[in-house]
């Protein structure tokens, strides 16, 4: 029957056409298409891997940042503490110096007062002596007539003064 009898011509042309189409498509269609598909799939896989890696790096960086921050905070506290200690020391030193200085000033003032007092006492004594001498001189002038009595009197004054 014709229907199931293969014709030589069609076999020849089918083989030739198929092989020619195969050769042309293989070179000019499948190669670039499959290459582009492979490339795209590779790019997608690479991008996903890169994103994953970036995520990990980000996490690592975050952790590192956190650590740095903690360190910075600790450092700041340490510096503040030290600064406070230094300041305290300065203040204390200053206070001590001030106290010392004031003590010294007070001491020297007392010294000066004592000296002044001594001088004033001496002055007073001198004044008293002078006054006594003036009084004695006046008394002497008055009592010159009564020499003995005058001497007695002078003696008694002197004793009194000594007693003071």
């Amino acid at each position: 029957m014709d229907l199931v009898t293969p014709g030589v011509g069609l076999i020849f042309w089918t083989a030739l056409t198929f092989v020619v189409v195969l050769v042309i498509l293989r070179r000019f269609a499948w190669k670039p298409i499959l290459g582009a598909l492979d490339e795209r799939e590779k790019t997608i896989a690479d991008s996903l891997a890169a994103a994953e890696k970036a995520k990990e790096e980000m996490a690592a960086l975050n952790a590192q940042n956190q650590k740095l921050l903690q360190e910075a905070i600790a450092e700041r506290e340490k510096i503040l503490r030290e600064a406070k200690a230094v300041a305290d020391r300065f203040v204390n030193e200053a206070k001590e110096k001030a106290i010392e200085e004031s003590n010294r000033i007070i001491a020297s003032a007392q010294e000066a007062i004592r000296n002044e007092k001594q001088a004033a006492m001496t002055e007073v004594r001198n004044q008293v002596a002078n006054l006594s001498l003036t009084i004695a001189e006046k008394l002497l002038k008055n009592e010159l007539s009564n020499k003995n009595a005058q001497i007695e009197l002078a003696k008694s004054f002197m004793n009194e003064i000594k007693a003071n």
Partner: peptide, 12 residues
């Protein structure tokens, strides 16, 4: 649907 066509492809 021609047997020569399918035969050639089957032969390949």
């Amino acid at each position: 649907g021609n047997i020569a066509f399918t035969m050639t492809l089957a032969l390949i």
